[in-house]
Amino acid sequence: MTAVAPEEFVGELRALAPRYWDSHPFHLRMHAGELCKDELRLWAANRWYYQRCIAQKDAAILSNCPLPDVRRQWRDRIVWHDGTRPGEGGAENWIRLAEAVGLSREEVLDERHVLPGVRFAVDAYVNFARTRPWVVAVASGLTEMFSGALMRKRLAALREQYPWIAEEGFAYFTHRIQAVSGEGQATVDIVVEHSVTREQQLEAIAALSFKCDVLRALLDTVDYYAGKS
């Protein structure tokens, strides 16, 4: 099969937007102010497991990539999540959010609240990055194309609907909104440049679809158990 033009390929990737988790019922309830404190804590504790593993996912991509230019660009993602020293980075900011909704640092770090379905979905994502071709794994991260709008909406909703959350708890979102302000264009450029056959383009589309499934599976699990509380 002949590869389609870059514009058409990017359009196929963007067409997956309805599969993103922005319209998930749990997110809709969150934005409407309908979550109780225990539900927010369950969400924060489980989302932590995803945040903790993102740097490992990116390190797996880095280890599989033979191109120095791409590796130099990609390593910044690990630094963003892990920081350059203890007490910095996106993962640390997520812990601050968890503390702001009433969890202790200890119970976040020991992962006592992480649900089996969440662990299974996130581990599958990390394993995907370890075992698939590096450009396919990069393509799985193109949910960046959709995440900026969701984060802006979530930050506004959390501030309005849950005024008891201290402002310092929102550091993850304020920093991440800036990081994804380009809607993943740098990642799109990498995927387009290195997906030179139609088969590779279709693999990239399938990878992004898989990532959307991972995110929705995470939230499906949290939503189910939140309903049991």
Rank of each mutant, 00 (worst) to 15 (best):
Thr2Asn: 13
Thr2Pro: 10
Val4Phe: 02
Pro6Val: 01
Glu7Leu: 05
Glu8His: 14
Glu8Met: 11
Glu8Arg: 14
Phe9Tyr: 07
Gly11Ile: 01
Glu12Trp: 08
Glu12Ala: 12
Glu12Asp: 08
Glu12Gly: 12
Ala15Pro: 01
Leu16Lys: 10
Ala17Ser: 14
Arg19Ile: 02
Arg19Ser: 14
Tyr20Lys: 10
Asp22Leu: 13
Ser23Leu: 11
His24Val: 06
Phe26Gln: 04
Leu28Asp: 12
His31Asn: 12
His31Pro: 10
Gly33His: 05
Glu34Pro: 02
Leu35Ser: 03
Cys36Thr: 15
Cys36Tyr: 14
Lys37Ser: 10
Lys37Leu: 05
Leu40Arg: 08
Arg41Glu: 14
Leu42Val: 01
Ala44Asn: 06
Asn46Trp: 06
Tyr49Phe: 13
Tyr49Glu: 02
Tyr50Ser: 07
Cys53Asp: 04
Ala55Leu: 00
Gln56Arg: 13
Asp58Gln: 14
Ala60Gly: 05
Leu62Cys: 04
Ser63Asp: 13
Pro68Asp: 08
Asp69Phe: 14
Val70Arg: 07
Val70Ala: 13
Arg71Asp: 11
Arg71Ser: 13
Trp74Met: 09
Asp76Ile: 08
Val79Met: 09
His81Tyr: 15
Asp82Tyr: 13
Gly83Thr: 07
Thr84Asn: 08
Pro86Ile: 11
Pro86Val: 05
Gly87Pro: 03
Glu88Tyr: 07
Gly90Thr: 04
Asn93Pro: 04
Trp94Ala: 04
Ile95Glu: 03
Arg96Val: 06
Ala98Tyr: 08
Ala100Thr: 01
Ala100Asp: 02
Val101Ile: 13
Leu103Ala: 07
Leu103Gly: 09
Arg105Asn: 07
Glu107Met: 07
Asp110Pro: 09
Asp110Met: 08
Asp110Ala: 09
Glu111Ser: 04
Arg112Met: 02
Arg112Asp: 13
Leu115Gly: 00
Pro116Val: 07
Gly117Ala: 06
Arg119His: 06
Arg119Ala: 12
Phe120Lys: 15
Phe120Asp: 12
Asn127Tyr: 10
Arg130Tyr: 03
Trp134Glu: 05
Val136Pro: 00
Ser140Arg: 07
Ser140Glu: 04
Leu142Arg: 11
Leu142Gly: 06
Glu144Thr: 05
Glu144Tyr: 07
Phe146Glu: 01
Ser147Val: 15
Gly148Trp: 13
Arg154His: 11
Leu155Glu: 12
Leu158Asn: 04
Leu158Lys: 02
Leu158Asp: 10
Arg159His: 11
Arg159Asn: 10
Arg159Trp: 11
Glu160Trp: 11
Gln161Asp: 02
Gln161Arg: 13
Gln161Ser: 04
Trp164Phe: 03
Ile165Phe: 04
Gly169Thr: 09
Phe173Ala: 06
Phe173Glu: 09
Gln178Tyr: 09
Glu183Asn: 15
Glu183Ser: 09
Gly184Pro: 00
Gly184Asp: 05
Gln185Asn: 08
His194Cys: 13
Ser195Ala: 15
Glu199Leu: 03
Glu199Asn: 03
Gln200Asn: 11
Glu203Asp: 14
Glu203Thr: 04
Leu208Ala: 11
Phe210Glu: 10
Cys212Asp: 02
Asp213Lys: 11
Val214Lys: 02
Leu215Asp: 10
Leu219Arg: 05
Thr221Phe: 01
Thr221Ser: 09
Val222Ile: 15
Asp223Thr: 08
Tyr224Leu: 12
Tyr225Phe: 07
Ala226Pro: 00
Lys228Leu: 15
Ser229Phe: 06
